[in-house]
Design a protein around this nucleic acid. Structure first.
Length: 426
RNA sequence: CGGGGUAUAGCGCAGUCUGGUAGCGCACUCGCUUUGGGAGCGAGUGGUCGUAAGUUCGAAUCUUACUACCCCGACCA
């Protein structure tokens, strides 16, 4: 990818609409642009990151045995009436009518659609358990969208729904999803906590949230300083109690004391039980040939929110510092004097081609700008490795490898092994 | 929905109090010189000052209404 050809409008100043660091940096790095409150266009750089995360999620979901489908965003009222949620959900359910004045909504979630699919197409316990997922745009007309894509109204989510014969089977799938989510967050490279949560209006039994720890998180969680225990503070507070009063108390699990942290909820897993299956009469025949209500679980990951969460956790005064697994590019070749100097341009072009053939994702900064401008942009965008081809190359045949995190070294241009080592060690 | 705030060029801002026909920095275009930390000089492009109505000879500026956006709260698989 040539820098001069990609739509990458970087900004020196953050627009005043942005408050939190991830929002500012996403705007400044040219990743997203706002279309309306809580509704964004993803530009090429942002989309690359979004797709990276999406693909990690997809790979791990597939590895867990889940199957990918794609359900509609527009859903008919009739399905939502079956679970009573057409009435129960407030204005956050965006409703619309088609030309025949038939009622629809934009899907904020897909229990109704998936349960309808399964009840019509799965008839026997022999087909269970089954776990179906999609990565799709959701719409929730949030009371107050904020912080850019962190809490958008339109957002990209991986949602999956498991159908199980009984509670034990559901528990098994639930644990499998729990492990899958751990793997996903570890692959992305985030510091997170699994938090016991209120299962809320959905009902059902077990429910856990996956929180990326960050100061700007909207949720307050209590974690033990000496065990894995973590719980949403909503579940600990008695009437009238202040959150700060929890700090330093003995942890409810008996290990250590409570610390209060802010978290960004990026995942939520539920054991729903039979709630929706009963409402929608989703049965299969069991071994005895009798109709048996399905046990259901649902599992969500906020894909677009993860982009913002990753930035909240990985930035410095110069810009974004992407974890290697989700950086929009692996390498930025900063060619100083590319337009003017054929020695530079030929060296940059051939290195670019070689690195791509080695499997790296590379951007070549071929713009007619100086070192400062190019480095500032690269640091803002958080590209893990910069390769500088400039004066040193003309004089000593040397290129400089400069990591986003600071280290740098001078190398022979033929020394691609060092580049390999750079990525291997991360 | 309650409270607070903002709205002038793509971005950041001044001008508003005290009405006189819109400006600065960056970005962008052209030319020349530059090129290892956001370059220099010269010449340019770009704005019905959020919208509507009102006051006035005259409104970015005063009045009223509305809208959009942001923050706090309530809300939130």
């Amino acid at each position: 990818m040539l820098f001069s050809k990609i739509l990458l409008p970087t900004l020196k100043d953050a627009p005043q609409e942005a408050e939190v660091i991830s929002h500012k940096l996403m705007l400044r790095a040219g990743m997203v642009r706002k279309v309306a409150s809580g509704i964004y266009t993803w530009l090429p750089l942002g989309l690359r990151v979004l797709r990276k995360i999406e693909n990690i999620v997809r790979e791990e979901m597939d590895a867990s045995g889940a199957q990918e489908v794609l359900m509609p965003m527009v859903q008919p009222k009739e399905l939502w009436q079956e679970t009573n949620r057409w009435e129960k959900m407030g204005p956050e359910l965006l409703r619309l009518q088609d030309r025949h004045e038939r009622d629809f909504c934009l899907g904020p979630t897909h229990e109704e659609v998936i349960t309808d699919l399964i009840r019509n197409n799965v008839k026997s316990y022999k087909e269970l358990p089954i776990n179906i997922y999609q990565i799709q745009t959701k719409f929730r007309d949030e009371v107050r969208p904020r912080y850019g894509v962190m809490r958008g109204r339109e957002f990209l989510m991986k949602d999956s729904y498991s159908f199980n014969a009984d509670e034990a089977c559901l528990e098994e799938t639930y644990q499998k999803m729990r492990n899958t989510y751990k793997t996903v967050l570890e692959r992305i490279g985030l510091d997170y906590k699994i938090v016991s949560a209120d299962s809320g209006s959905i009902g059902g039994d077990a429910s856990e949230e996956f929180h990326v720890l960050a100061e700007t998180g909207e949720d307050t969680i209590a974690i033990s300083d000496s065990s894995e225990f973590a719980i949403n503070t909503e579940l600990l507070l008695k009437d009238g109690e202040d959150i700060s009063s929890l700090e330093g108390k003995p942890s409810p699990d008996g290990n250590g004391t409570i610390q209060i942290k802010k978290g960004i909820e990026v995942g939520h897993i539920f054991q729903l039980g039979k709630v929706y299956a009963e409402d929608m009469k989703a049965n299969v025949l069991n071994k005895e040939g009798k109709a048996s209500t399905l046990h259901m679980g649902c599992y969500g990951i906020g894909v677009s929110r993860l982009v913002a969460a990753a930035i909240e956790q990985n930035n410095d005064d110069k810009g974004i510092v992407w974890p290697h697994g989700i950086a929009p590019f692996d390498i930025n070749i900063i060619a100083i004097g590319y337009e003017k100097d054929q020695i530079i341009s030929e060296a940059a072009d051939s290195l670019y081609a070689e690195l791509i053939s080695m499997g790296y994702e590379v951007i070549l900064d071929d713009r007619k700008d100086g070192y400062g401008t190019k480095m500032k942009d690269s640091e803002l965008m958080g590209i893990p490795l910069n390769i500088i081809i400039g004066k040193q190359f003309i004089e000593n045949n040397e290129i400089e490898l400069k990591a986003r995190t600071g280290e740098s070294s001078s190398n022979d241009i033929g020394d691609t092994k060092t580049i390999l080592d750079f990525f291997k060690n991360k």
